[in-house]
């Protein structure tokens, strides 16, 4: 019985690594065609599903002319309407040898720069917005509010943390977006709205976790700071936060990871266009939104491109958490 229990526990633990490894392998294999096609240039390419003419050497040309015969040509005309593009892309791309009559090959270029930048910036806006508010809530609940107030508010925060993200997305699209647009100008869907909706979404999450970390500070430690003549603010600043540091940073990392991969809420409010947000109130795109919006219409290379993008998001999340752990929690 003892042995069986040990084995089951061991199995559950090793399952984590199996899943992690399997995910990585599948992502990599599926992304391989796109990686071979675009290489590292994918990171720095800001165009998405745009046709590009490729100059070919005479030898290649003659070879291609033979194949030219009855290929239909297609020029993608509007890269913003990506969904339409994808369907066509497949025809273009799977064969990978169609060309235009002026003996130049054209190919469709995919680049990840816009969604990468959009993801990073929307997450940063979310963190900048949520961090001070979440810390304020956590400190209030654990140190300032009388317990008659702290308990119900604490439960409310935990309930908020459990609201499905699509509800935040709808609220963001129909109410919050227009409100922000009135306030700051610009579009009702934009990088700013996405960042703020994300921020609002992670506030309860971050606040609840940070509060839990702060409540682990022993009363005696706080009392000894008061006994030195510290005020409440000084106790919180000098004793509570440093003591609960690793727990608070943990809550920030988890929230960061959540914001980075958030799909539904962002899909509603970021705009989903493949262009950089010149102003913070412009619409742009993020990796999970591209994935969610495009999977249904993709196959072949365009699907592989999505896997490449997914791999980037995977590595990005992994790197953020790994760096944060190494940097902040070293010596623990």
């Amino acid at each position: 019985m003892e042995l069986l229990f040990k084995k089951i526990a061991q199995l559950s633990a090793s399952l984590v690594f199996v899943i992690l490894a399997a995910t990585t392998v599948v992502l990599y294999l599926s992304a391989k065609p796109a990686i071979q096609e675009f290489g590292a240039g994918f990171f720095f390419e800001s165009r998405w599903a745009v046709e590009e003419k490729v100059e070919l050497s005479p030898a290649e040309l003659s070879e291609l002319e033979l194949l030219e015969a009855d290929k239909s040509t297609f020029i993608s005309d509007d890269f913003i309407e990506d969904e339409d593009d994808f369907i066509m892309d497949d025809e273009d791309f799977i064969t990978d040898d169609d060309m235009e009559s002026d003996s130049n090959e054209s190919r469709i270029v995919y680049g990840a720069l816009v969604p990468i930048v959009g993801t990073i910036f929307s997450t940063l806006i979310a963190m900048l917005f949520s961090l001070p508010i979440a810390m304020g809530i956590a400190v209030f609940l654990s140190e300032i509010a009388p317990s008659a107030l702290a308990k119900p508010v604490g439960v409310a925060i935990e309930l908020l943390a459990s609201i499905p993200s699509i509800i935040y997305g709808m609220w963001g699209l129909f109410y919050f977006g227009p409100f922000i647009a009135d306030l700051f100008g610009g579009n009702t869907v934009s990088l700013l709205v996405a960042g703020l909706v994300l921020g609002i979404m992670v506030i309860p999450f971050m606040a609840a976790l940070s509060r839990d970390a702060i409540t682990t500070v022993p009363d005696m430690l706080k009392e000894s700071a008061y006994a030195m003549g510290a005020t409440k603010l000084e106790v919180i600043k000098d004793v509570v936060f440093p003591y609960a540091k690793s727990g608070i940073i943990g809550s920030i990392i988890l929230s960061f990871g959540r914001a980075l991969g958030e799909t539904m809420a962002v899909a509603f409010v970021i705009g989903g266009v493949y262009q950089f947000a010149g102003k913070i109130t412009d619409p742009t795109n993020s990796i999970p939104v591209v994935l969610a919006n495009s999977f249904a219409e993709s196959s072949g290379l365009s699907l592989s491109v999505l896997f490449y993008l997914a791999l980037i998001l995977f590595v990005l999340s992994f790197a953020v958490i790994a760096i944060a752990k190494l940097y902040f929690l070293r010596g623990k």
Partner: peptide, 8 residues
């Protein structure tokens, strides 16, 4: 106090 309480 009863227990040592070094500040962090």
């Amino acid at each position: 106090f009863q227990k040592p309480t070094p500040f962090p």
